[in-house]
Amino acid sequence: MYLTEVKTSDIIGKQFRYKFKSYIGVFSSLVIIQLLGLLFSLSGSRFSSSSAVGYQVDVQYYTVDIVMIFTIFWGFMSAMLLTTKAYREDDFAFITNRFSSNLSTIAFLAVISLIGSLTAVLSGFLLKVVVYLVESEPLLSLNRGGIASTYSLEILGAFVVVFLFATLGYAAGMIIQLHRLFIVVLPAIFLGGSVWVATFDVPIDLFHFYFQEANFLLFLLKMVGTAGVLCAVAMLIANRLEVKR
């Protein structure tokens, strides 16, 4: 009997293409959410005011922070949705196993995270144009210098954060698939943990660990490393999940 031999990498590639077509809907929510974020950003993100002799100087800052936050949340939600039964089993119509299916999903998450962060960073230009057209005051651009002036590095920085949250959503979704009860348990652990840290001043400050890291390389390393761990967790769980369809 002649058996077709397949290369895993080849199948992952095909599944990725298939998933990209299947899940193209994630981009409609991305666009809506980023436009919504831009709308909220039009009122300005920060305001500072200072007075001196004869002067009162107000500075209104416009940033895409809200768009970024929305995009991060979008990544989280989209990834979580992909773990639900209807999506997770989509590729079982064609050649797959759990390993290739997960890898292609993670690759898909990486690509949408990249697209999401790319548009999030670039949406600033749209914000700038709209603010210029709407507001009568002069519009200045702030150049913070250093790596913040390099768009590619900004996109990279945004990407690792969005991707981290996407993998977080993916892993959380998989855990929930393991047992429905985790829908309640996971947020409880999260909230409980936050309260515990806050009340007892426990010196485990995850936020500090991840988001106060000033060294860009270390920052990337922490984000990507954690995302990797989350992917591994998701894959371990997925390996136990059967296809129920």
């Binding site: 500075v59 940033t63 200045l140 702030l142 210098g145 790596i147 000033a214 060294n215």
Partner: peptide, 30 residues
């Protein structure tokens, strides 16, 4: 002198991520 109101709109494309604030801990000061 009579106090003058000056208002500026500043577009700041920098991300609110720590590595991008490097070097100028708080760019927001007068």
């Amino acid at each position: 002198p009579e106090e003058q109101q000056i208002r500026y709109n500043v577009y700041d494309h920098g991300l609110s991520l720590e590595p991008f604030k490097e070097g100028n801990d708080s760019p927001f000061h007068s």
